[in-house]
Design a protein around this nucleic acid. Structure first.
Lengths: 233, 233
DNA sequence: GATCTATCAGTGATATATCAAAGGCTCGAA
DNA sequence: TTCGAGCCTTTGATATATCACTGATAGATC
């Protein structure tokens, strides 16, 4: 049996199910589990030292999050990466991000815009310094994510933040198996996005963001094509 | 116990969990369960004649779908409707629908455009005939949904269809408790959307769709303000 | 009479047990 | 050597049982 935690916080009742969910989520997005790998509920249960039940709930949530696929006979596998999944993810990402900048145009306070400039400059400097693309690099993608996440937060729509976070998890899963080639971004690419927000012109901001997301998609597709399909198993 | 169905289809193994999920989903979207109503896992289990376990999985999925909220102490309630949930839903809907028409502009075949015109005309005629807004009316909203769903299908992005379906379920939940007042649409409002797709101009189609969705939001907000908050409990 | 406490019913979380189906492996026969 | 039947293992689905916690209520106490 797993250690019983008194769970002081009111929301920590469902300790094990949550622990299994978060554990598997982190293992999947952290690259410890290969795409396509079968996840046996029983094995997961014993690996986490819990019974079968919390795993059922965790797997249901993982499936809803898109991190695992459950096919026939309830065989659960870590999400595999295909051309279609990459494109679908980017369609959603583009929908969310363009919507977020549009709302940010209307809702952003001057202070938030300053904040966004700070984040954008950090990303742009990091990219300009050629820091990205080092194997195993975590800092660059993290900065980039924080910038985009902040835009969603500024949009004042929680649902948008939540959905974007979900997509980000899928991106992380993929990033462990497809290493993007060196493709230079436009200089000050992210600061330009904040410029667009500051200009309070939603259509323009939308167009900038759409181009930005599309260039990300192009990189992903390039990476996908350059890598032999790995965890197909 | 519940009747054992041999479940000939390969995907029907998880019969009970699925049955509970779909049953609750339909009860919620069909207005049989009030927003805010507490759903006890045990009571649901006995009501569906199953044990506790399938209900756990069903509730996890319902929560992911946004149809129930699970607050502190794991008390599950049918999603309550607030100004924020209405607005958030429409932000996502706008993101999905505008993305869908943009993609439809590029991907729609002439045959699909004809098909869309057929659906649009049906909706427009129904609206023009004043058919909508009859209490308990199901046909109008169904036609409307089929039109919008078809656009998503034409976009060739499964993920977009899936997410739009999720939002549609939330709208149905709400529609049972807030009756929209009579607000006339623009004539041929939906056919104009197909015109925009046919023109193959994504930005223009986006703008038309955005205006269309926003007018829907205005109606919902009006309905919300006109109705005393019902199932707040 | 008001208040405090002990008990009880309801609920969620989880462990264990049972059942059925699928896949694989062994052993024997051709 | 190869193929096939039957057994065994693994797995998923689900029922039942147990534990802890919460809220309410009844009874005792001041």
């Amino acid at each position: 049996m797993a250690a019983k935690k008194p769970a002081g916080r009111k929301d920590a009742q469902t300790a094990l199910a949550r622990a299994v969910f978060e554990g598997l989520r982190d293992e999947i997005t952290g690259g410890k589990l290969r795409p396509g790998q079968v996840l046996s509920r029983r094995q997961v249960a014993s690996r986490y030292g819990t019974s079968y039940i919390p795993v059922i709930e965790a797997m249901a949530r993982l499936e809803s999050a898109g991190l695992i696929d459950v096919e026939a006979r309830q065989v659960a596998r870590v999400r595999t990466i295909t051309l279609e999944t990459i494109q679908d993810d980017y369609v959603l990402r583009e929908a969310y991000e363009t919507q977020a900048v549009r709302l940010a145009c209307e809702a952003a306070t001057p202070g938030e815009i300053e904040d966004l400039y700070r984040l954008a400059d950090a990303v742009d400097e990091y990219v300009a310094a050629g820091g990205t693309k080092r194997t195993g690099d975590k800092e660059g993608p993290l900065l980039h994510w924080q910038f985009h996440r902040r835009i969603a937060e500024v949009s004042r729509c929680r649902a948008l933040v939540r959905e974007l976070e979900r997509i980000e998890l899928l991106r992380r899963l993929q990033a462990n198996w497809y290493f993007a080639p060196e493709v230079p971004d436009l200089p000050r690419c992210h600061a330009l996005l904040v410029d667009a927000i500051e200009s309070r012109n939603p259509a323009e901001a939308d167009a900038s963001m759409r181009a930005h997301v599309r260039s990300g998609l192009e990189k992903e597709l390039l990476a996908y094509r350059m890598n032999v399909t790995p965890g197909t198993r």
